[in-house]
Design a protein around this nucleic acid. Structure first.
Lengths: 209, 209
DNA sequence: CTCGATTTTGAGAGCTACTGTCAGAAGGCA
DNA sequence: TGCCTTCTGACAGTAGCTCTCAAAATCGAG
């Protein structure tokens, strides 16, 4: 209902063509009806046909907007932003430092603007195994890009083990914090939780748990 | 062909009943034919019906032995062993120390006994997205159990964030090392690579990449 | 060995996610 | 207005997976 366009990535405003506007409206309708049905009947119990009917489109049209049912939940416009932040960070700053400063600032802003929808999504991701898997895969492919960018500018191999382990464990720590937040009903300070998780990685697991 | 029973978990020997032996033989036949077809035609291009025909069973019987096509590759008898090692470790030993000492010893032994099949599996997991996702999910659920066991004996909450982050990042680091090994054609010292990955976590990501 | 109980199996129908094709409708542009 | 591009719905088809049911194989006891 409310035009809640996130202000963090460049928002293109209303595009000129009627075609474009209709496409956006259809896309929003699909997502809205899908989320409603997921909430009411559960993810697995909701079929694509039902979503299509609720959104008043044909089932085949559904797959023109989203390559799979999972993508209705998982399409994420923030990943490119994350990559960009890390790509443009100063050369002498470690991945982890960049995340704990710049990325967390952006996360705070995302929550402010888009918190409610993020909560819905994360709750679904927490509770539906298929979505959890896809989420991890998606994030890992982003972090692979990040690791490769770091490799390129420091002259390491793009397959450098330490680099990839750093990326993978930062990803895992953030995911774990986000899931803990979702488990707690999306209440509490997500940014603080993510920072706590990352602090542990920074200190190292020498004596800790 | 060769009765290559791994000697690491308790090997039950040949069970008495004919029924049991036949079941094991069928299970092995399915896996053997499946792996052969995967190698020859690829994972996605191989259908369950083809595997069933090659193993001389009906398609419906296939699903009595493996709940899904993915499970032919992913069924892993080592995970309970991993959990057991960590569960029975001394209370004052951190997760990471247990892994870097005891778990790596067991891994070395697994490679010695079962190296070839492990290589086939890891190569499949590396190259088939669906398998990668399931693998991660599977390992994470094991590490959740481990985290809960650690929580119980140290009086923490089973949802303790630091504990879960530690478990998740150890898991991620090991997975990354194993994937790097598979990427290198399953050559080189896997145990050394995993240890390098874990060493980074132990030191912490303060100045590193 | 035989008979009844239990387990395993094959056949087949059915559901859902997803892909591809193709003609026709709708929007854009001169 | 009329042509061109894009979008849409109907339909057929494939693969993974579930469920049911009756026939076959195995097991245990007498």
């Amino acid at each position: 209902m409310t035009a809640k366009e996130s202000s963090i990535p460049d928002l293109p405003g209303s595009p000129a063509g009627l075609r474009e506007r209709k496409k956006i409206k259809t896309r929003q309708a699909i997502r809205r009806e899908a989320y409603r049905l997921f909430r009411e009947h559960g993810y697995d119990a909701t079929t694509v046909d039902q979503i299509a009917e609720a959104a008043e489109i044909s089932p085949s049209t559904f797959f023109r907007y989203f390559p799979s049912k999972e993508d209705v939940v998982l399409t994420d416009e923030y990943d490119p932003l994350l990559i960009e932040i890390l790509r443009t960070a100063p050369d002498d700053m470690s991945m982890l430092r960049v995340v704990r400063t710049r990325v967390l600032d952006v996360l705070r802003e995302i929550i402010r603007v888009d918190g409610a929808e993020m909560a819905t999504r994360m709750t679904l991701v927490l509770n539906v195994p298929a979505l959890r898997r896809r989420t991890y895969e998606q994030q890992m492919s982003s972090w692979t890009l990040i690791a490769e960018a770091y490799a390129a500018r420091s002259g390491r191999s793009p397959y450098d083990l330490e680099l990839r382990v750093a990326a993978a464990s930062i990803n895992a720590a953030m995911a774990e914090a986000i899931m803990a937040w979702a488990r707690a009903g999306c209440t509490g300070d997500l940014v603080a939780m993510v920072d706590r998780a990352l602090a542990l990685l920074e200190t190292g697991l020498r004596h800790n748990p």
